[in-house]
Design a protein around this nucleic acid. Sequence first.
DNA 1: CGTGAAAACATGTAACA
DNA 2: TGTTACATGTTTTCACG
Lengths: 157, 157
Amino acid sequence: MQPELDALDRRILALVQEDARQPAERIGQAVGLSASAVQRRLARLRETGVIAAEVAVLDPRSLGRPLVMIVDVELERERPELLAAFRRWLAAEPAVQQAWYVTGESDYVLVVTAAAMEAYDALMQRLVAENANVRRFRTRVALGAVKRGLALPVDGA
Amino acid sequence: MQPELDALDRRILALVQEDARQPAERIGQAVGLSASAVQRRLARLRETGVIAAEVAVLDPRSLGRPLVMIVDVELERERPELLAAFRRWLAAEPAVQQAWYVTGESDYVLVVTAAAMEAYDALMQRLVAENANVRRFRTRVALGAVKRGLALPVDGA
DNA sequence: CGTGAAAACATGTAACA
DNA sequence: TGTTACATGTTTTCACG
């Protein structure tokens, strides 16, 4: 993938990763381009996969899921055949927002949302019961979020 | 905020948090509603803040930022006056995607993106230099992502 | 009150120079 | 690329259940 993003593309990306619903004309005024030029660039950015998706971000409190847990999961390395199933379990579980495979003592770091601690506990009981290769896990409760987005820096650096 | 989300709202939310660009008519066909009914509900969901934002999700590789680090930051608790500045630093730093204030030994968990390890190291040097209350931090490199979204479960549970 | 249908309106898309 | 014409989607209005 060699999309050759120029400065204009990057400024457009910076805007749409804040608000994907703003009309192309507004973006054009901000970056000094006509609406159709912006549309063309957006189409190309979607086509080439630079824009991977445009999604609605929902408010956790409105959906009754105010809790966030950061979970470190340690797996038994002796059972690689269970790894794929573990990953599928994570992928299929909607309460798991993010799951990173990381270096260090713990093998996976999860970001998990929950309605209440009991629901979270039940989820983790299921995780352990249904994944024999989970050796142990550590939960840290997120008491607050300074930031919780997926935005990326778009400047040339 | 008592938005009273019914089953139809939830199904609409499930769809738009996957793809916010699909026309209301398609959503309507999926949930058994007319396009205008869907539009009305979407307008209300935006109005009440259930839909917090609609954003473009960018591809990290296309932007030359393939690396993700999970960073545990431990602060000195003796200097609460520096805490606000630390949070502002995180908020202002675009490489920091997420920053959670958590229980446990480490005070903050960050999700940081980087173009290369050198750039990440430089960033963390700046973090320490510009925040005197950072006692230490631990970096875990994300070797892979099973999941990396912000999607929430929308079912009544 | 929320819905569906049809209007007016804005936006996005596809041709042109 | 910008401009124009065209198609699509959205917003408003209104009558209905």
